[in-house]
Each structure stands twice: as structure tokens, then as C-alpha cells.
Design a protein around this nucleic acid. Structure first.
Lengths: 163, 163
DNA sequence: CATGCGAGTCAAGCTGCTTTACTCAGTGCG
DNA sequence: CGCACTGAGTAAAGCAGCTTGACTCGCATG
């Protein structure tokens, strides 16, 4: 869980910009998360796939809706769906409201992944709460929520790669 | 600063996972930051370039060192340096300790960018502190610092794209 | 001198996305 | 009815940013 390569010696974490801290925290958490998922035998799904699953979770969505929520073009979303369909994680069904639309829905395999991922993530965050000692990651959570609200209103922005 | 496309109606920010919140917060901040930089006439430099500048800031570094700090291959780092050199932001100087090494250092243009970027980032964070009302982004900062320390020890990990 | 190592670089390839351009189903309107 | 128009999906090509593999060169060490 720790980097043992000491490529540089200065230790200026406290003075670091908020933005940097956010980036590092996110990166570390996500990396650890995906690593644990891989250990749990889910190495074939990257974070973006988990994101797709969450979006499709309740009622599915059309390709275009998916694209909007992911913040990519509909072609890119289509490629993701192609891939996931081929691997048996989603199905394209005719859309109930007809038209040229198709409804992309999750298969059982995807729901199984969501279950594992959810547990893994919760474990990770719980473990982290213990390790920081503070125990009140709740504080952190509410502060972050305020920050996000301040910048994006009530609509969660698409979560996308970062540079 | 806000997304006005309301592509979905549920509003479950509070129950969101910590990891999601971190991702959204980071993404929003970085997007706003780069946008403001672009308005300030620095549209030709992406966040990764700012990262490079910060690494080279004090004493410069060799290509390999830079690659390690960025978390990419030395070839990728070399391409970044090629690009920045061509655009006048860095120079390759012979390394004082000789060998095949070269020391990559910043030009005045890069230092100017760092100044603008630093100010922009500070303004943004200050404005955010006002808008959240809490005023104590210091709390957030220290909590994030604890989190990062808990996961990475004292060595800031390379900050890289995320999925 | 030979061997090996580490830094840098050249070249090819890949992946995930974008841009451009098209097809097709439904809608509204003369 | 015929006909433009819209919006979803798809097909194809291109591109950016990275990787892997193979190499060159400077220097240290035996």
C-alpha cells in the first residue's frame, strides 16, 4: 500500500495545494480499489466499466444517455457497450418507447460485479477510517459534498480522466 | 461554473461513496482551473505540463528522474520534454555530474507560467472557501493530508490520469 | 581492454478516444 | 399522401499519448 521508492526527499504535504491533495487522494484510493478488485478476480473491468454499471444499474439507458453521463461521444459509449456486450456484462434490448433507440441493460454478471465492487469499496473506506484514526471520515464526506455542490450544483458531473 | 444540462434527476450526493466525491471534486476543480488558465492566455499548457514545471522548478531533473516522478516511461517523459523544449519552456543542459545525463531546466517562460498558475489556483481555492461558507477549507486540507499519509506514507505519489 | 550498466533516443505499435459521414425510425406539416 | 426534419445508432478513419522493444553512447569496473 506504500511507495517504497524514495525518489525525492522533500516532504511538503501540508503546504500542498488543495487541488493536489484531492488528486493524490483520489488517485491513491482508486488505485488501491482496482488492485483489490483484481485480487478478487475482477481484473478484466476497469473503473470506467464500474461507472457504466452504476449508470445502467436501475433502469438501463440508451447509448446516447450513457454517453452524456460519461462525458464522451456516443461513439465512444457505443464501443464500450460493444465490448461489454461481447463479454456478457450488458445486453441491448429494443427500447420500450420504440424508435431507433435501444435500451442497454445489465446482465447478472454485471450485478455480481457491482456487489463485489461495492463491498470492496466499503471495506476500503472503513479500513481507511480506522487508519487515519480520526474515525470521522463523515466530516470529510460532508465537506467534499459541500465543495462539489458549490461547483456543480446538484447535478453530479461526469467523472472522467483528468489530464 | 455549473452544468446546466440536467440529464438525470436523482440527487444522491450525500450517500455517494467517498471515492466518488473525491473524484468529482478533483475533476471539477481541475477543469475550472484549466479553464481559467486558458482565459489567462495559457491555453497551450495542460495540467501535466504544470506538473512537469513543478518537478523541475527548483533544480531541474534528468529525463529519467522526471519520468519516475510522473509515473510514466522515460520515453514518454522525453516526448514531453521535446515538446516543451520546442515551445521554449525548457532547456536541456549538460548535466554537471557528466555522463550521458542531461539536466532539464525551466526557462523564464515556464517560471512566468508557474506564477500565473499559482495565483489562479490560489484565487480559485479562496473563492471556493467563500462559496462553501465553511470558510475552513483548512479542515478539508488537513483531513486530506491525513488520508494521503495513511495511504502513501510521506512520499507524494505520482499524479496521473485515472482510468 | 572487455564487460556491464545507466541515461537517452529512435521506431513501431496500441488503445481509447474524436471527427466525419452515413443509415434508419419516427414526427410534423404542406 | 409526400416530404423535409430530427434524433439515435453505427461505420470508418484519424489522432494523441502512451507503451514496448531495440539501439547508442558515456562512463565505471574487473
Amino acid at each position: 500500500m506504500c511507495h517504497d521508492k524514495d525518489v525525492h526527499t522533500d516532504d511538503r504535504l501540508p503546504e500542498a495545494e488543495l487541488t493536489f491533495l484531492l488528486g493524490m487522494a483520489f488517485q491513491l484510493l482508486l488505485a488501491e480499489f482496482t488492485e483489490r478488485l483484481a485480487e478478487a478476480g475482477q481484473a478484466d473491468l476497469r473503473p470506467v466499466h464500474g461507472m457504466v454499471f452504476q449508470i445502467l444499474r436501475s433502469e438501463g439507458a440508451t447509448g446516447t444517455e450513457l454517453a452524456q453521463r460519461l462525458g464522451v461521444t456516443k461513439q465512444a459509449a457505443g464501443q464500450l457497450v460493444d465490448d461489454l456486450e461481447q463479454r456478457g456484462y450488458v445486453r441491448r434490448e429494443p427500447h420500450p418507447e420504440g424508435g431507433r433507440r435501444k435500451l442497454v441493460v445489465l446482465t447478472d454478471a454485471a450485478h455480481a460485479h457491482l456487489a463485489v465492487a461495492g463491498r470492496t469499496l466499503h471495506d476500503l473506506e472503513a479500513e481507511l477510517a480506522r487508519r487515519t484514526g480520526t474515525g470521522d471520515l463523515a466530516t470529510l464526506r460532508t465537506e467534499l459534498t459541500q465543495l462539489v455542490r458549490a461547483m456543480a450544483g446538484d447535478t453530479p458531473p461526469p467523472l472522467r480522466p483528468v489530464w
